[in-house]
C-alpha cells in the first residue's frame, strides 16, 4: 500500500513537474508576463457570457473586420450568441458576397445568407499584404487557440499599446506593444475609448472592448466549449462512481488471495 502511494505520488510529481519545467520556456522567450484574466468560460464549469459575446462581436464587426477575416465562421453560427433566425438573416444581408458562375459564366455579387461564411475584407492574402505594408492581418477564427496565452494574450495585446521606452529603437511603420514578442507590431492600436457604442449600454473603455473581443474570439475558436464542459462533468462523475464500484468489486474477488 505504501509503495503504491509512493509510486502514485512520484507519478503525480512527474506529471505536474515536467510540464511546469517545459511550459515557462515558451513564455520566457516572450518576456513580459501577461496579466491573467478570469473568464466566465474557464474550466471546469465555465460557460460563455452571451452579453459579452454580443459586445465582442460588435467590436469585431466594427473594428477588426476591416482588416481581419474570420473564414471559419458562418453567419448561422451566430445563433450561439443568442440571435434568432431573422436577426441572423439581417446581419448576413448587410454583406455582399461573390457567387456564381451564373448561366452566362460570370461571377456576381449577392447579399449573404446565413449559410455563407463571414465575408473576408480582402479577396486573397496578396491583396491583404498589399493593403497593409506587406504584413497580412491574420485570420482571427483560431487566434484564441493559436497563440500562447490564448484570450489572456489577446486582451493583453489590445491594452498593451504604449509609447516606446526611452532609448528603444523603433522600426518605421511599427507600433510599440508591451506584450507583443519583440515589442514591435505592424498593427496600430486598433481599439479606441468609446470607439464603438455598445447596444446594451456598457461603457466602451479600451479594457472593456478588449475583454469582450477576447471573449468573442475564444468562442470563435472553440464554439463547442460549453458542450465539452457539460459532457465532461457528466463523464467524470460517472467514471468516479464506476471506479469506486469496480474497486470494491475487485477487493471482493481478491479477498481470498490476500
Amino acid at each position: 500500500m505504501r509503495k503504491t502511494i509512493l509510486s502514485l505520488g512520484l507519478a503525480a510529481a512527474v506529471a505536474l513537474g515536467v510540464p511546469a519545467l517545459v511550459a515557462p520556456a515558451a513564455q520566457a522567450a516572450e518576456g513580459v508576463a501577461i496579466p491573467k484574466m478570469s473568464w466566465s468560460f474557464a474550466a471546469p464549469f465555465g460557460t460563455y457570457d452571451r452579453a459579452a459575446l454580443q459586445r465582442g462581436f460588435q467590436v469585431y464587426k466594427e473594428v477588426c473586420a476591416a482588416c481581419h477575416s474570420m473564414n471559419l465562421l458562418a453567419y448561422r453560427d451566430l445563433a450561439d450568441l443568442g440571435y434568432n433566425e431573422n436577426e441572423i438573416k439581417a446581419i448576413a444581408a448587410q454583406y455582399e458576397v461573390t457567387d456564381g458562375p451564373n448561366d452566362q459564366g460570370e461571377m456576381f455579387q449577392r447579399p449573404a445568407v446565413p449559410s455563407d461564411r463571414f465575408k473576408a475584407p480582402f479577396p486573397n492574402v496578396q491583396a491583404a499584404k498589399a493593403a497593409n505594408n506587406g504584413a497580412a492581418p491574420p485570420d482571427l477564427s483560431l487566434m484564441a487557440k493559436g497563440r500562447i496565452g490564448g484570450p489572456d494574450y489577446i486582451h493583453a495585446l489590445m491594452i498593451g499599446y504604449e509609447n516606446a521606452p526611452a532609448g528603444f529603437e523603433m522600426q518605421p511603420g511599427l507600433s510599440y506593444n508591451k506584450y507583443f514578442p519583440g515589442h514591435q507590431i505592424a498593427m496600430p492600436a486598433p481599439i479606441n475609448p468609446d470607439g464603438v457604442t455598445f447596444a446594451d449600454g456598457t461603457k466602451a473603455t479600451v479594457d472593456q472592448q478588449s475583454r469582450d473581443v477576447a471573449h468573442f474570439l475564444m468562442w470563435a475558436a472553440e464554439p463547442k466549449l460549453e458542450q465539452r464542459h457539460r459532457l465532461g462533468v457528466q463523464v467524470v462523475l460517472f467514471l468516479l462512481i464506476l471506479s469506486g464500484l469496480l474497486f470494491v468489486a475487485k477487493r471482493r474477488i481478491w479477498s481470498d488471495v490476500h
Binding site: I241, L242, L245, L246, R252, I253
Partner: peptide, 28 residues
C-alpha cells in the same frame, strides 16, 4: 459465477455490487 463457489455471508450484497458494476460498464 466464479465466486458462487465460496460460501460467504452477505451473498446478495455482493451480487448487487457485481450487478451494479457490470451494469455501469455496460451503460458506459
Amino acid at each position: 459465477a466464479t465466486t458462487q463457489g465460496a460460501a460467504h455471508a452477505g451473498q446478495t450484497r455482493r451480487d448487487f455490487l457485481f450487478l451494479a458494476a457490470g451494469a455501469g460498464v455496460g451503460i458506459g
